Measured scan of single mutants.
Amino acid sequence: GKMTGIVKWFNADKGFGFITPDDGSKDVFVHFSAIQNDGYKSSDEGQKVSFTIESGAKGPAAGNVTSL
């Protein structure tokens, strides 16, 4: 299901970062391709987002990331 969290950091040059879930669980990796914004796929530190957890090649990753 959908979770909410805060972007801990995001490196636009490398195209990835981490989200800290609101439920206190482990930080989740986020790749720019998962960000659902139109246009520039980046996110700012401290941005509140909703997301799903997908199982990626390197473990859990955020999917369907949407700014709230």
Rank of each mutant, 00 (worst) to 15 (best):
I53R: 05
A62G: 02
I19V: 03
E54Q: 11
K8H: 09
Q47E: 11
Q47D: 11
A62I: 03
G46N: 09
I35K: 01
G59M: 04
N37K: 12
T4C: 12
Q36G: 08
P21Q: 02
F32N: 07
A12M: 11
D44A: 15
F32E: 09
N37A: 13
N64L: 08
P60A: 09
K48S: 06
G17P: 00
N11C: 11
P21V: 04
K41W: 15
D13A: 14
G15S: 03
K2I: 12
G24Q: 05
A12S: 11
D38E: 12
S67Y: 15
V65Q: 01
Q36K: 10
K8D: 04
N11Y: 04
K48D: 03
D27I: 05
F51Y: 10
L68F: 08
T52W: 08
I35T: 05
T52L: 07
M3Q: 09
F32L: 12
I53V: 10
E45M: 14
P21K: 00
I53Y: 10
D38Y: 14
G15Y: 03
P60E: 07
H31C: 10
Q36D: 11
P21G: 01
T4K: 06
Q36R: 08
P60G: 04
T66W: 04
T20P: 01
D13I: 13
I53S: 03
A62S: 02
G39N: 10
I6C: 12
G63Y: 12
G59L: 04
A57G: 09
Q47N: 10
T52E: 07
Y40R: 10
D38H: 12
I53E: 02
G59R: 07
H31I: 05
A62C: 03
V49W: 02
S55F: 15
K2A: 09
S42L: 14
D27L: 06
I35E: 03
D38C: 14
Q47S: 12
F10Y: 09
T66G: 05
M3R: 10
S43N: 09
D22R: 00
D38Q: 11
A12C: 14
G59Q: 04
A34M: 06
P21R: 01
I53G: 02
P60H: 07
F51G: 02
G5D: 01
A62L: 00
A62D: 01
G5P: 00
K14R: 10
N11T: 03
I19C: 02
D44K: 15
I19M: 01
S33L: 08
I19W: 02
G17D: 01
S33C: 10
T20Y: 05
A12L: 10
G46Y: 09
D23C: 08
T20R: 12
S33M: 07
P21C: 06
K26I: 09
F18N: 01
T52M: 07
S33K: 06
P60R: 14
V65S: 03
D23V: 05
A57C: 12
S50C: 12
S50E: 10
G15H: 04
F18S: 01
K8S: 06
T20M: 10
N11M: 02
S50L: 08
S25R: 06
S67D: 07
K41Q: 10
T20W: 05
S42W: 15
Y40N: 09
D13R: 12
D27F: 02
K2C: 13
S25E: 05
A12R: 13
A34E: 09
K26T: 09
V28S: 00
F16V: 03
D38L: 14
F18R: 00
T4W: 04
K2R: 13
T52H: 07
V30G: 01
T4Q: 05
D44L: 15
A62F: 02
I19L: 05
F18W: 10
K48R: 14
F10G: 02
F10A: 02
W9M: 02
S42F: 15
D44M: 15
V28D: 00
E54H: 13
T4I: 08
M3V: 09
S33Q: 06
K2T: 11
T52A: 04
H31P: 04
F16G: 00
P60F: 10
K2W: 10
G46I: 09
D13H: 12
V28K: 00
G46C: 14
T4P: 01
G15F: 03
P60N: 08
I53D: 02
K26C: 11
G39T: 09
Y40M: 11
D22Y: 05
V49T: 00
E54Y: 13
P21M: 05
V30N: 01
E45P: 15
I19A: 00
K2S: 08
G5W: 03
I6H: 08
V28M: 04
D38M: 14
S50V: 08
D38P: 13
P21T: 05
S25W: 04
W9C: 10
A12Y: 14
V30I: 09
K2Y: 12
G1N: 12
G39W: 14
I6A: 05
I53T: 04
Y40K: 10
K2M: 11
N37L: 12
G1I: 13
N37C: 15
A61E: 15
D44R: 15
F10D: 02
K48G: 06
G1L: 11
A12E: 09
F18D: 01
G56C: 09
Q36M: 14
D27K: 02
K26R: 12
G15R: 04
N11K: 04
A62K: 00
G63F: 13
K8V: 07
I35A: 03
A57T: 12
K26W: 06
L68H: 07
P60D: 08
K58S: 09
N11P: 03
F29Q: 01
V30D: 03
D23M: 04
A12T: 11
A61K: 15
S55G: 09
V49N: 02
G24V: 02
S42Y: 13
G5N: 01
V7H: 01
G56T: 15
T52Q: 07
S25L: 04
Q47I: 11
Y40S: 09
D27M: 05
A61G: 04
G39D: 11
G24M: 05
A57D: 10
G1W: 06
S55D: 12
V7P: 01
S25F: 04
K58L: 10
E54L: 13
N64P: 02
S42D: 08
G63R: 15
G24L: 04
D23G: 06
G1H: 12
K26A: 14
G63A: 15
G56E: 07
F32R: 13
H31D: 06
K58D: 07
V28P: 00
T20L: 09
Q36F: 11
K48W: 13
S50P: 00
S25H: 06
A12I: 12
S43H: 13
S33G: 06
G24E: 02
G63H: 13
S50T: 09
G46S: 07
G63Q: 14
I53L: 10
V65T: 01
D44G: 14
G46L: 10
F16W: 14
I6P: 00
K41V: 12
M3H: 10
T66E: 10
V7M: 12
G17R: 00
G56V: 05
L68R: 06
E45A: 15
S55C: 14
F29L: 04
G1A: 12
F10S: 00
A34G: 08
S67R: 14
G56F: 08
E45H: 14
V49Y: 03
S67F: 15
S43Y: 15
G39E: 09
G24P: 01
G24Y: 03
G17Y: 07
